[in-house]
């Protein structure tokens, strides 16, 4: 997996009584790798119950000001705590209705989505559900989308970086950034479009219809093909490489183009 963007040490509050499990450890590790700062809520005491988690979560929200909360639905084995996460969710949203909360649950699609708690949430609250068995990559992806901040820069593999705000593309060598001067105008716009789709979701393709404005003449596909070729040559020159048909920007049979991070 490639790192996309830098999370600038955003704090993520982890509220799960199984935070010591291997499964959660893999999520914590992934968050750290991606530049987040996970803060685990872990009440201490001989008989820790759902209420203790609730109290400490609300305290930590004030204290740490996290960018998002990762919250489990089920706490402990007691029936009273079975859906404690939902009541914690309600409290969180009451305090800060804009707080992004990713519910860690096996009930992602189950009937409990329709509980009164969910119904009471306003349309503005950003709450999403993810299965506990989801891969750590999926968890981080969903969290990132929930937080919703567009990245200032999008990294493509470890070779390039696109700075959308300053309309610049850099090549990265030994940790240093060098501006690729050739990359401007239409080439930059095409690359930005492809990079934005890639950032949203790795499998997202940019259909021809969305790229047609960059083409000219009767045969828009052919014209686009030429532009993409030029784009790949410019990027290739910067790293002294020749990107083939199945590298960097690939044509998906009669559908559109897709960005794939280059292999080093």
């Amino acid at each position: 997996m490639t790192s996309k963007g830098i999370s600038n040490g955003q704090k993520i509050l982890i509220v799960d009584d199984e935070h010591m499990s291997d499964l959660m450890r893999s999520v914590l590790r992934r968050l750290e790798t991606d530049g987040f700062r996970p803060i685990v809520v872990a009440p201490e005491g001989p008989h820790v119950g759902g209420d203790d988690y609730e109290a400490q979560t609300l305290f930590a929200m004030e204290e740490e000001r996290p960018a998002a909360v990762l919250l489990d639905v089920r706490f402990g084995e007691y029936d009273t705590d079975r859906f404690k996460g939902l009541s914690i969710l309600k409290k969180i949203v009451e305090r800060d209705s804009s707080m992004p909360v990713l519910m860690f649950t096996q009930y992602a699609q189950g009937p409990y989505r329709d509980t009164a708690v969910m119904a009471s949430l306003g349309a503005s609250s950003s709450v999403d559900f993810i299965d506990k068995l989801a891969s750590p990559e999926e968890v981080v992806l969903r969290l990132r989308r929930l937080i919703g901040t567009a990245p200032e820069t999008i990294r493509i593999g470890s070779l390039f970086e696109i700075d959308a705000e300053n309309a610049a593309v850099y090549v990265i060598e030994d940790g240093k950034r060098d501006l690729i001067r050739e990359m401007q105008g239409m080439k930059l716009e095409i690359l930005s479009e492809l990079a934005a789709a890639y950032f949203r979701s790795e499998g997202e393709l940019v259909p021809f219809s969305r790229l047609e404005r960059f083409s000219e003449g009767d045969d828009s596909r052919a014209s686009l093909r030429v532009r993409i070729r030029e784009l790949k040559v410019s990027l290739g020159n910067a790293v002294s490489r020749d990107f083939g048909a199945t590298e960097l920007i690939i044509n998906i049979r009669n559908r559109g183009y897709r960005l794939v991070p280059p292999v080093e």
């Binding site: 989801a134 891969s135 990559e137 999926e138 992806l141 969903r142 989308r145 789709a197 949203r200 979701s201 790795e202 499998g203 997202e204 393709l205 940019v206 259909p207 219809s209 969305r210 998906i252 559908r255 559109g256 897709r258």
Partner: peptide, 29 residues
């Protein structure tokens, strides 16, 4: 679009493992 994107994300590693290319898109964007 978000529902489809989430599914694509979930199945991307599986597709990759089986040497399949999985792509998705929506129109309008």
């Amino acid at each position: 679009a978000a529902v489809i994107r989430n599914i694509a994300d979930r199945y991307l590693p599986i597709a990759r493992e089986r040497d399949l290319e999985l792509v998705w898109w929506c129109e309008p964007a």
